[in-house]
């Protein structure tokens, strides 16, 4: 299944093109479904303007801040929990509970605690993103290879070196899986946090358009969110390929 360059591009674009065509066919039947052309025009007018700086960038910034914080927190807590059987036995039921709580319901609570500004939104993102990272890190660290652990003990690899050379790389495939899940959760929470009480951001703007019956603009916002998610996940895949080059190379990923 090796396709040459142009053929590959054609194949990748075929489905989106088909979808746009289908959209075209059904659009106009109702006021709420404008044609692709109208949405495209609205897209250019709405987002290629100061809104990019006023709404898109703050949203993306909060997403990245919350995501990074959740990543640090998840890995930072997950490693000690994964390494200690006692910590795991104590904490795991609680962690599973917190993970099961849908993060959006925390928004009102976090609003009470952290106000309605940027800290609240970042906190909402952290509160949702941290769980997949944390639980996957715990699992990855717990499942580290016993023979490699013995090797570390025999050759005096301990402390920080053990963490850097053995624990973190060994758990990296799982940690990356957690981070991938967290990324999509982060985008959802970014939008939700902005829908509650906000004066800027993508979520806020989309709700605003909907209330003002600017239907084409609303659709263009949804389109932008989809594109944002796509770009982030492509970027993530790049980073993952680079971090886990050994993992994909060794064929462990296929096993």
């Amino acid at each position: 299944m090796t396709a040459s360059g142009p053929l590959k591009v054609l194949r990748a674009l075929a489905m989106p093109a088909l979808l746009v065509l289908a959209w075209w066919a059904v659009s106009g039947s109702t006021f709420y479904l404008p044609s692709p052309a109208a949405v495209a025009r609205a897209f250019a007018e709405t987002w290629l303007s100061e809104r990019l700086v006023d709404d898109v960038l703050p949203s993306a910034g909060r997403l990245l801040a919350g995501y990074a914080l959740a990543g640090l927190l998840g890995v930072g807590l997950g490693v000690p929990i994964g390494l200690s059987r006692r910590l795991r036995a104590t904490l795991e039921p609680v962690l599973e509970f917190f993970r099961a709580v849908p993060p959006p319901v925390l928004v009102p609570l976090i609003m009470l605690l952290a106000g309605i500004d940027t800290p609240m939104k970042v906190l909402v993102i952290v509160s949702g993103c941290v769980w997949p990272v944390l639980l996957n890190t715990v699992e990855g660290v717990r499942a580290l290879d016993g023979v490699l652990a013995d090797t570390c003990r025999m050759y005096g690899v301990r402390g920080v070196a053990r963490l850097r050379r053995f624990v973190l790389p060994g758990a990296a495939p799982q940690i990356m899986a957690g981070l991938r899940q967290a990324l999509s959760i982060g985008i959802i929470l970014m939008v939700i946090s902005e829908m509650f009480a906000s004066s800027s951001g993508l979520g806020f703007t989309i709700v605003l358009f909907q209330r003002q019956f600017q239907i084409a603009e609303m659709w263009s916002g949804i389109l932008l969110l989809g594109l944002l998610g796509l770009v982030l996940s492509l970027l993530f895949r790049r980073v993952e390929r680079w971090v886990l080059a050994w993992y994909y190379g060794s064929g462990a990923a296929r096993a």
């Binding site: 025999m154 790389p169 993992y247 060794s250 462990a252």
Partner: peptide, 18 residues
């Protein structure tokens, strides 16, 4: 400190990321 071991499971005693 001055003892080395060669394990049976060679595939699992080397660090694949190095």
């Amino acid at each position: 400190p001055r003892m080395a071991v060669v394990f049976q499971e060679y595939g699992r005693s080397l660090f694949p990321w190095m």
